[in-house]
Design a protein around this nucleic acid. Structure first.
Length: 795
DNA sequence: GAGCACTGGAGCAAA
DNA sequence: TCCAGTGCTC
C-alpha cells in the first residue's frame, strides 16, 4: 500500500504503521512511554473509519480519563472529520453508566440511579456498620469500604464473599463481618437506587452476563473495541471487554506494563502481561522509539525501572541524543525544597525559556502540595492544582448536588440524609433514626416514610421540619423537566440554603456562594438532570485541567498520560516516595517504582528530582533518607545541585566516589562553605542563636537577595501561622538535638531522631548512614554535632 | 431533643 | 488539614 501522502498512515513510523494496519482479531500494542500510543490509537480508529469503512457507531474506544477521550475525539476529527463526534469514546465508568441507564430496570435499579462517590459510599458504609451493631472503631468505614471495593473489582458478590469468609481459611470473624456489611451495603444501595464506582463496572458485567439479549445487542453494535492504558485494567474491565466483543474479538489494546500504577484500585498488571492467554490468536506490536524525552531523561528512567524484576525486556530509545542531565536538589526541609522549585521555575521563566504551562510539579500525595503552593503564591507564579480537594468535593457543591439527587431519586438515602436538615430545620439524629427504623421495617425508603409522615408519631419541631422539607422537595421535583439549573435554583433558594450563607457574611461564605453560582452555570449547559449528575459524578481530576499559562501541580498518579517540557518530581524520599506503606512489600515497591518511571518519563527537556533533609508532614517532622529511586540512578547521569554536595555524600553514606565529577570542583566552591574539614566544627554563633532562629530555614539559603528573602519569610510565616509554629527541637544539654547531624567514632555520620531523658543521662536514637538506627546512651556514645540540619550558615 | 463549639485522632494514590 | 465524637446550652 502506498502511504506517501495519506494523512492517516504517512506520519507513522514502521512499528506504529504495522499496528494501525492490524487486520482482524485481538491485538496488543506494547507501547513504551512517549512512543506515540495515543497517536497509534487515534490513527487506528481513523484508519478503520476511512479505509475500512467501519461505521463510527461500530466503534467503542475506552480511554483513562474524559479529557483523554476529548483529545482523542479531536485528533480523530482532524483526520476524518465530524463523524468523530458520533463515536463512543469514553472511560470504562462512563460507558458502563451509559449502558446501565438504558437497562437498569432489568437489574432492579431505577434508570435515574444515583452515582455515589467515595465519600458517599463511605457514609453509607458507616450507616451499615452502625446498624449492624458493629464497633465503628474496629470496622472503620474507610477500611471496610476499601475491602468491599476490592471484592467488587474482583467480581465477588456478597454471597460469594460470605462463602469465602466461612471457609476454613477465609480469614476469620473480621472477614465474616465485612461480608455481612457488604451484603447489607449492597441491599441498601439497591434500595437507595444508587451505584458506587465499582458497581458501575460490576453491575455492567452482571447485566451483560445475565441478560444475553442485552449483551448480544452491544456485540452486534460494536464491531471494534479499542482500549488505552490497558495495563491499568482490573478483572471487571477485562470481563467487560470480553462480553462486549463478539466472536471476531476485534479488541485492540494499548499499554505499557511499566506504567501500571493502579493496583490499589484493582488493576492487575497480569492483564497486559497475559493478554495472549485471555484473547487467543492475539498479535503483538512493540513500539520502542520514544519521541518525547531527551536521551538523558530516558537513561534516567531506564536506570530506575530496570530494578523491577520479571518485567518483559524493553529497549526504549530516542534519536534525540544528549540533553540536559536531570537535576537533583536536596533541601533543608520541605520549605527549602519548595523555595528551590519555585526559584528554578522563576529563573527559567525569567530567562524566557519556558511558558508557565510548560512546567509541572509532581508529588506522591496531595498533602505535599500546600507548601509548594504557598511558595508559588508568595512569588506570583501562576499555577493550577489538579486533584486534591476537587471542586465537586467541596461541601456546598456536595450539598447542592445532594439536593438535586434527592429530587431526581427520592430513594437516595445518603443524599436525602445529607440535605433533610439543611439548613437546620429541627430534624436531628433521633428523628432520622426513627425514620430509618420505620424504613428498614417496611423495607422501603426514607422518602416514602416521610411521604406517609402523618401516620407516624413524629411531632413538634421535627414534624414541622419534615413537612417543610417534603414540600420543598415536591417543588424542586416539579422543576426536573426544566433541567438541573432550575431544580438547583428552587432547592437552594427555597430551602433557605443560600440565605443562610448570605447571612453568614464571611469571606468563606462568599466563596461558597460563588462556587454555587459556578455550579449553576455548569448546570445550565444541561437539559437533562440525569445527564448532568452523571457528568459531574464521573469527571476525573485531570479533566479540570486547563491549558492556560499556569504551572501544573498534581500527584504522580494524575500525571499519567501527560507530558511537559519541565518536570519537577518533589519529595523524593524513602517514606514519602516510595510511600512508607509500600516499603515493606516488594510487590508494592515495584509499583512505586513504576510510578517513579511514569513521573520521570513525563519530562521532555528537563527533569528535576528534589528531596528534603527533614519534612513536616501530617504534623510530624521526619528525617527521611533520599528515595531509593534516586540512589538507583548512576551518579554520573545526574547533576547534583544540592547546596552541600560532597559533604558526606548525597545520602547518609560517606561520599565514596567523586560522583559530582561532571561539575568538577565547582561543587564545593558553589556551596560557599569551605573545605570538608570545617564541617565537623561546632558553630558557636549558631549555638548561641535561639531555637526559633535556628529553626528558620530561610537563613540557610545563601543564594538569595534581600527582597526575595523577605518574600520567602512572608510565605514561611503564613505557612507557619496555618500549621502552628513548628516546635523547636529540644536541645537537652548535649550540644545537639533532634534533627542534628552527629558523628560517632565508629558508626560514622547520622541524624538524631529522638532524645529521651534516662536518669541522669540521655538516651539518644540516631539513624546512621551505614548501619541504620541505633539507640545510644549519650555519656558513652560521645557523639559530636556536625552542624544543624541544613546547609551552611551565611552570616 | 437539637444545635453549637470544642477536642482529638488519623492521614496514600482515584474513576 | 479534615473529620467524627462529645459535652454544653437553649
Amino acid at each position: 500500500m502506498s502511504t506517501g501522502d495519506d494523512p492517516i498512515l504517512a506520519p507513522l513510523n514502521a512499528g506504529q504503521r504495522a499496528a494501525v494496519l492490524h487486520g482482524d482479531g485481538p491485538a496488543l500494542v506494547v507501547a513504551g512511554a512517549g512512543s506515540g500510543k495515543t497517536r497509534v490509537l487515534s490513527h487506528r480508529i481513523a484508519y478503520l473509519l476511512a479505509h475500512l469503512n467501519i461505521s463510527p457507531f461500530g466503534l467503542l474506544a475506552i480511554t483513562f480519563t474524559n479529557k483523554a477521550a476529548g483529545e482523542m475525539r479531536e485528533r480523530i476529527g482532524s483526520l476524518v472529520g465530524p463523524v468523530a463526534q458520533r463515536m463512543w469514546i469514553s472511560t470504562f465508568h462512563s460507558a458502563c453508566a451509559r449502558i446501565l441507564r438504558s437497562h437498569a430496570d432489568v437489574l432492579g435499579y431505577p434508570a435515574t440511579f444515583s452515582i455515589y462517590d467515595q465519600a458517599d459510599s463511605r457514609r453509607l458504609t458507616r450507616y451499615v456498620v452502625r446498624d449492624l451493631d458493629l464497633d465503628p472503631k474496629r470496622y472503620n468505614e474507610r477500611a471496610v469500604h476499601a475491602a468491599i471495593s476490592t471484592m467488587k473489582n474482583q467480581l465477588r458478590t456478597p454471597t460469594h464473599a460470605a462463602e469465602l469468609a466461612d471457609s476454613p481459611d477465609g480469614g476469620g470473624p473480621f472477614n465474616r463481618d465485612v461480608a455481612r456489611v457488604y451484603s447489607e451495603y449492597q441491599k441498601r444501595m439497591r434500595r437507595a437506587g444508587a451505584m458506587d464506582f465499582d458497581d458501575l463496572l460490576m453491575l455492567g458485567v452482571e447485566l451483560l452476563t445475565t441478560h444475553g439479549d442485552v449483551a448480544e445487542h452491544y456485540r452486534q453494535r460494536f464491531s471494534h473495541i479499542l482500549v488505552d492504558e490497558y495495563q491499568d485494567t482490573n478483572l471487571a474491565q477485562v470481563r467487560l471487554i470480553g462480553l462486549l466483543s463478539g466472536p471476531a474479538q476485534n479488541v485492540f489494546v494499548v499499554g505499557d506494563s511499566d506504567q501500571s500504577i493502579y493496583a490499589f484500585r484493582g488493576a492487575d498488571i497480569s492483564n497486559i502481561l497475559e493478554f495472549g492467554a485471555t484473547f487467543d490468536r492475539a498479535s503483538t506490536y512493540v513500539l520502542e522509539q520514544n519521541y518525547r524525552s531527551s536521551q538523558a531523561i530516558l537513561d534516567t528512567a531506564n536506570s530506575v525501572i530496570r530494578n523491577n524484576l520479571g518485567r518483559p525486556p524493553k529497549n526504549l530509545w530516542t534519536d534525540q541524543s544528549g540533553g540536559a542531565k536531570p537535576i537533583r536538589y536536596r533541601g533543608t526541609n520541605e520549605e527549602d525544597e519548595a523555595r528551590y522549585v519555585c526559584s528554578e521555575l522563576r529563573r527559567l521563566h525569567g530567562e524566557g525559556r519556558i511558558d508557565w504551562s510548560d512546567a509541572a510539579i509532581f508529588y506522591r500525595s496531595n498533602a505535599q502540595s500546600r507548601v509548594i503552593e504557598e511558595e508559588l503564591v508568595a512569588n506570583d507564579v501562576p499555577y493550577q492544582i489538579i486533584g486534591g480537594t476537587r471542586f465537586y468535593d467541596r461541601r456546598e457543591i456536595k450539598d447542592a448536588l445532594a439536593f438535586l439527587r434527592a429530587a431526581v431519586n427520592p430513594s437516595d438515602e445518603v443524599s436525602l440524609k445529607r440535605v433533610v436538615n439543611l439548613p437546620a430545620r429541627g430534624i436531628g439524629d433521633r428523628t432520622i433514626a426513627k425514620l430509618d427504623d420505620v424504613a428498614a421495617r417496611g423495607d422501603t425508603s426514607i422518602a416514602e416514610v416521610i411521604d406517609g409522615l402523618e401516620s407516624l408519631g413524629v411531632r413538634g419541631t421535627a414534624r414541622g421540619g419534615l413537612l417543610q422539607f417534603r414540600e420543598l422537595m415536591g417543588r424542586a421535583r416539579a422543576q426536573i423537566p426544566n433541567g438541573p439549573a432550575a431544580v438547583l435554583e428552587v432547592a437552594l433558594a427555597e430551602s433557605g440554603y443560600v440565605q443562610a450563607l448570605q447571612d453568614e457574611g464571611t469571606v468563606e461564605a462568599d466563596g461558597r456562594l460563588e462556587h454555587l453560582e459556578e455550579l449553576a452555570g455548569a448546570a445550565a449547559d444541561f437539559e437533562d438532570c440525569d445527564e448532568f449528575l452523571e457528568q459531574v459524578s464521573l469527571v476525573s481530576d485531570v479533566d479540570a485541567m486547563t491549558d492556560a499559562s499556569q504551572v501544573s501541580l498534581m500527584t504522580l498518579h494524575s500525571a499519567k498520560g501527560l507530558e511537559f517540557d519541565i518536570v519537577l518530581v518533589t519529595g523524593m524520599e524513602d517514606g514519602v516516595f516510595p510511600h512508607h506503606r509500600s516499603m515493606t512489600d516488594p510487590i508494592e515497591l515495584e509499583e512505586e517504582r513504576r510510578l517513579a518511571y511514569v513521573g520521570i518519563t513525563r519530562a521532555r527537556k528537563q527533569l528535576y528530582l528534589t528531596h528534603a533533609w527533614s519534612r513536616l508532614l501530617h504534623g510530624q517532622t521526619s528525617y527521611n533518607p533520599p528515595s531509593r529511586f534516586i540512589e538507583e540512578i548512576p551518579p554520573e547521569l545526574i547533576d547534583d545541585r544540592s547546596p552541600d554536595t560532597g559533604r558526606y555524600g548525597s545520602s547518609w553514606r560517606p561520599a565514596t566516589s567523586d560522583w559530582g565529577a561532571n561539575r568538577g570542583a565547582g561543587v564545593r566552591s558553589d556551596s560557599g562553605t569551605g573545605p570538608a574539614s570545617e564541617y565537623s566544627q561546632l558553630d558557636e554563633a549558631e549555638l548561641a542563636a535561639s531555637p526559633q532562629q535556628r529553626a528558620d530555614p530561610a537563613r540557610h539559603d545563601d543564594s538569595t537577595s534581600k527582597g526575595r528573602e523577605s518574600r520567602r519569610e512572608e510565605a514561611r510565616r503564613r505557612v507557619a501561622a496555618r500549621l502552628g509554629e513548628p516546635k523547636p527541637a529540644p536541645k537537652a544539654d548535649l550540644g545537639y538535638g533532634v534533627g542534628d547531624d552527629v558523628l560517632h567514632a565508629r558508626f560514622g555520620a547520622g541524624v538524631v531522631q529522638e532524645v529521651r531523658p534516662d536518669g541522669d543521662d540521655w538516651e539518644v536514637t540516631v539513624h546512621f548512614a551505614d548501619i541504620g538506627t541505633k539507640t545510644l546512651v549519650a555519656s558513652f556514645a560521645d557523639l559530636r554535632r556536625l552542624r544543624s540540619s541544613g546547609p551552611a550558615q551565611t552570616h
